[in-house]
Design a protein around this nucleic acid. Structure first.
Lengths: 136, 136
DNA sequence: TTCTTTTCTGCAACAGTGTTGCATAAGTAT
DNA sequence: ATACTTATGCAACACTGTTGCAGAAAAGAA
């Protein structure tokens, strides 16, 4: 859990508590989920913490149509091994949205290559919708 | 432009003006763009019109990380021909975001098939980021 | 056309989400 | 321990989107 040192951001009690929420949840979480996990806290500080975490590459934002926004740990904060491209944050996973339980799951899976004539494609994001293993 | 009849929603002067904004723009537009195109207008009515258009399958919403939200005409409102699956709205195109001009372009392109073991995938969305032909 | 019904519009008020400025508190390096 | 830097918590605010309701407009029928 030396995330703070690795990412070169200050370790504070508040940030540790927020980070723990991510470690305690298997899948992506909403800000509302974080808030209820934290108990009494300052909203503004939370928003700033989230921004700090995103900028540092600790977490990433997942948005879906219909104002569904969640946050999830970046891969290199889960498995501490591949610390190579932690600045070029192009996640090698699919964001899966389960229509049943409404969870968003980062599924490790190689992304397909998309060739668009005339375009320079730097990276792609894939969002899949359906039913997760637990709900099938 | 018999969109109103096709989609079974009432034709009003306001809705026609909003629809024209979409027809006058090649790519996806933000709500702010619509508002400035309209001139003086009622914000609430605009939001309700957008909701009506989305529900009727006239336009679709495109969201990208970083609070970037845009709206675009659905395919079957552009080319009037294929009126088949206008209820199952799984757009057969990639949403391309140009990092230079910040435009979002719906690129006609078959979506790849994604196989996720254990998951039932109903449909996927693909967002590509890079540089569009005009900015290359 | 004119009437009737249904839906839309525009206003007011409000709810949710996220930001900025600033003084104080806490973290980090020497 | 000290000095320096950054984070926190508060207040106030900005932006985005929603709800309720009365009056206006659209669509269908007589």
């Amino acid at each position: 859990m030396a995330v703070f040192k690795e990412k070169n951001i200050r370790k504070t009690a508040f940030r540790q508590k927020v980070l723990d929420v991510f470690y305690n949840n298997e899948n992506a979480v909403t800000i509302a989920q974080i808030e209820s996990s934290l108990g009494s806290h300052d909203r503004i500080t939370l928003y700033r913490t989230i921004r700090t975490f995103i900028d540092a590459g600790v977490i990433h934002e997942i948005v879906m149509p219909g104002d569904l926004k969640k946050l999830a740990l970046c891969n290199d904060c889960l498995n501490k091994h591949d610390d190579e491209h932690h600045h070029t944050h192009h996640h090698k996973h699919v964001h899966f949205h389960c229509e049943m339980c409404d969870e968003i799951i980062c599924v490790d899976n190689d992304l397909p290559h998309i060739n668009l004539a005339g375009y320079r494609v730097d990276y792609i994001e894939v969002q899949a919708h359906g039913v997760c293993p637990r709900c099938i």
